[in-house]
């Protein structure tokens, strides 16, 4: 049985296209929660550059907190487990899905329920925040392109909220 048949996604795979913005489900990603006291501790284990500053992203790794990073990668690369080391690497690939908001009204759509000032949210920045009552992680991929990570069980609600807001 193919993976496409086996997977069951909480939202439609057909993008929703409205005036000035489209909402689509990103392809499946591998996701890891990376935890350590310092970026250096993770760099030693992963052998890649890890951003230092909260909000910064580098090579698919977003710094979400002083000891928390999110690695998102399309590749099926083998991850070290960090066994025995003062780090925590946890597979959270299927914890969330990613909705892609794209178009000149992408920021406007997100601001319908997200209280952050996205005019002052630079490309490349990532943060955990909230849309109305639902926790999300936003990653600004471009001026007109946001990735919105949301836990699976909230995804259908968020999709409905986004499409309702985009249709207005």
């Amino acid at each position: 049985m193919s993976d496409a048949l086996f997977r069951n996604e909480p939202v439609s795979s057909t993008p929703y296209v409205a005036d000035g913005v489209s909402i689509s489900l990103a392809a499946p990603l591998k996701r890891y929660s990376l935890r350590a006291r310092t970026a250096e501790a993770l760099e030693t284990v992963l052998n890649v550059k890890v951003p230092q500053k909260i909000g910064a992203t580098e090579g698919g790794i977003a710094c979400l907190g002083p000891d928390e990073w999110l690695l998102r990668t399309p590749a099926e690369a083998a991850m070290p487990t960090g066994a025995g080391l003062p780090v925590a690497i946890t597979d959270i690939s299927e914890r969330s899905i990613c909705l892609v908001l794209e178009g000149p009204r992408a920021a406007e759509l997100l601001m319908t329920g997200c209280p952050l000032d996205l005019d002052n949210f630079a490309v490349g920045r990532a943060t955990r925040t909230i849309y109305e009552t639902v926790e999300i992680i936003i990653i600004r991929e471009g001026a007109d392109r946001f990735h919105v990570e949301v836990w699976r069980s909230f995804a259908a609600w968020l999709w409905t909220a986004f499409t309702a807001a985009a249709s207005h």
């Binding site: 329920g113 069980s153 609600w157 968020l158 409905t160 909220a161 309702a164 807001a165």
Partner: peptide, 17 residues
């Protein structure tokens, strides 16, 4: 928006369907 289906999130599992 917080009325009807959007009143508050109803969380569903993968098997809910």
């Amino acid at each position: 928006h917080a009325k009807g289906a959007l009143f508050q999130p109803t969380r569903t599992t993968n098997i809910d369907g």
